[in-house]
Computed example of a mutant assay.
Amino acid sequence: MEDYEERKSWSVKNENIHEELSELMEITEEEKNLLADLKDVAEEQADAMTDDFYGRLMAHENTAEYFEGLDTDNHDFVAPWFVDLFGGTYDAEYVADRLEIGHVHVRIGLPVRYPLSMIDVIMEHGEEVVEESPEPEKAMSAFQKLLSLDIAIFNQAYEDRQLEHLAELVGGERLARRLLTGGASK
């Protein structure tokens, strides 16, 4: 069996991914400010985005079942998430909130393919918001980075839970990582 190499990235967990991803994605203060200046526009767009978002989910049998018994007309879930993309503050608390959203999806058993398949709805409405910027091209670039950040955080929530459960089953995170990467079969 070859030596198994651990990766530095594996030690970055929870809200600590904020610093790593912010550095990796090179989100500038100018970009944060461009998005923050659009927050009011995002609030105006949030209801239309939410209607489209839930409209698609409710029209699909396999996604609609996750909303049985919930009041999706309330817009308490998706609208604030969308508006926060234009909040201008993307710190450890922001990451923790986004991780919690991901963990809720994991707890209810929602396959990751469903939330990721909704990104085009978010993008479409985000594009409408950034068109109101005095610098729409820069604002669009910033919005794309923030949406990518959210997707990365969201995926992290799924990965965290998968790793946590596998580590419980096999007796430790190191062995779980070896199994996930195929390192245990070498």
Results as ranks from 00 to 15, higher is better:
residue 123 M to H: 13
residue 169 L to Y: 09
residue 16 N to K: 14
residue 66 Y to F: 15
residue 69 G to P: 04
residue 131 E to P: 01
residue 9 S to C: 01
residue 40 D to I: 13
residue 165 H to A: 03
residue 25 M to D: 02
residue 51 D to Q: 07
residue 165 H to M: 03
residue 35 L to D: 11
residue 73 D to T: 13
residue 12 V to Q: 07
residue 84 D to P: 05
residue 87 G to E: 02
residue 142 A to C: 12
residue 41 V to Y: 02
residue 67 F to A: 03
residue 99 L to Q: 09
residue 69 G to S: 00
residue 46 A to Y: 11
residue 127 E to H: 04
residue 4 Y to R: 02
residue 126 G to F: 08
residue 75 H to I: 00
residue 163 L to W: 03
residue 162 Q to I: 14
residue 181 T to E: 05
residue 26 E to H: 12
residue 28 T to F: 02
residue 96 A to E: 04
residue 137 E to I: 07
residue 30 E to W: 01
residue 142 A to N: 03
residue 10 W to G: 10
residue 135 E to A: 10
residue 73 D to I: 00
residue 76 D to M: 06
residue 62 N to H: 12
residue 96 A to Q: 11
residue 151 I to M: 15
residue 59 A to K: 04
residue 146 L to Q: 10
residue 157 A to W: 06
residue 162 Q to D: 10
residue 121 V to S: 07
residue 88 G to N: 07
residue 90 Y to M: 13
residue 63 T to N: 02
residue 122 I to L: 15
residue 155 N to K: 15
residue 11 S to D: 11
residue 126 G to M: 02
residue 138 K to S: 12
residue 74 N to K: 13
residue 139 A to Y: 15
residue 22 S to I: 09
residue 52 D to Y: 08
residue 179 L to V: 15
residue 93 E to R: 13
residue 19 E to C: 04
residue 91 D to L: 07
residue 98 R to D: 01
residue 145 K to H: 12
residue 68 E to D: 13
residue 73 D to R: 06
residue 16 N to E: 12
residue 179 L to P: 00
residue 185 S to W: 04
residue 5 E to M: 10
residue 48 A to F: 10
residue 85 L to W: 05
residue 115 P to L: 04
residue 56 R to N: 04
residue 183 G to Q: 10
residue 6 E to S: 06
residue 136 P to H: 11
residue 49 M to S: 09
residue 142 A to I: 14
residue 14 N to Q: 14
residue 137 E to K: 02
